[in-house]
């Protein structure tokens, strides 16, 4: 599973870093660092993180592939 975060949209609310701390992390106070390839055991957490993003900046799966191209 692949994810893409639209970093123009991201405003550093960090909701994803709470919900899937092994995939999303804050670099400093606001900048987001994330792993684009999601291990299977993190899928559920990543989906929850994408749902919770206040600016809907996280694209998951096929959606990520299509929009990232």
């Amino acid at each position: 599973m692949q994810i893409v975060v639209d970093l123009n949209r991201c405003q550093g609310y960090a909701q994803c870093a709470f919900l899937a701390p092994q995939v999303f992390a804050l670099h400093g106070e606001e900048a987001l660092a994330y792993s684009p390839a999601v291990p299977d055991d993190q899928l559920d957490r990543v989906r929850k993180a994408a749902t919770a993003c206040p600016v809907q900046a996280i694209l998951v799966g096929e959606q990520a592939g299509a929009d990232a191209g």
Partner: peptide, 18 residues
Amino acid sequence: RRLAMRPFGPPHSPGRVD
């Protein structure tokens, strides 16, 4: 808010709520 966040969430306590 940042001082309160230190023991609650990222970047210092990312796994606390989880």
